[in-house]
Amino acid sequence: MSPTSPAFATATLADAAGREFLSPSGVEIVFVLVGVVVLGAAVLCVTSRQLVHAALYLVVALGGLAVQYLLLTAEFIAWVQVLIYLGSVVVLLLFGLMLTRAPIGRSPDADSRNRPVALVVALAAAVTLVTLVVDAFRTTWIELDVPHGRSDALGESLFRYWVLPFEALSVLLLAALVGAIVISRTGRADSSAPSAGRSKDAEGER
């Protein structure tokens, strides 16, 4: 963000090349349209009283975000988003909803009593941050002509410069897996296998 950075120089050049804020390009129009879909799905996700519908609205929001990543030429991130978020995280959330016996229809107690306070806090944060962001990046453009974030370049930098955090992350995922198994197994002496204990408890909950 310093004025001497090359990105700022290209941004000012593009600014001098005749781009204006009120004449959006095609990519910007598509970005705004998909962004409206993402925001609407997110709002429905946090306000819907039907719990399974909330999870499905989350699918729409995260899928729209993958489209936004594609528009920003970050294609590898987009496919990872589709695979991991839509493929595993939402399925885990649906399993969580079913295992906690979420009601199928409308549940009247999905929201707590401090809903007005939450609305005030969220609106205040939104107004403050939007004002700040628009004021800070008013004259900044992203150059999307050359794709930045292709899989080969990203993989090269990931396995050349970010190998140590990558390995640390794999150890963390292993620790999270072991921790989830330890948390969710029952403490009974006769349940030798955790899967047997879980299925037994799932039957008990039914």
Partner: peptide, 8 residues
């Protein structure tokens, strides 16, 4: 693309 769109 204007940077304001993804930031907002």
């Amino acid at each position: 693309m204007h940077l304001v769109y993804p930031a907002v």
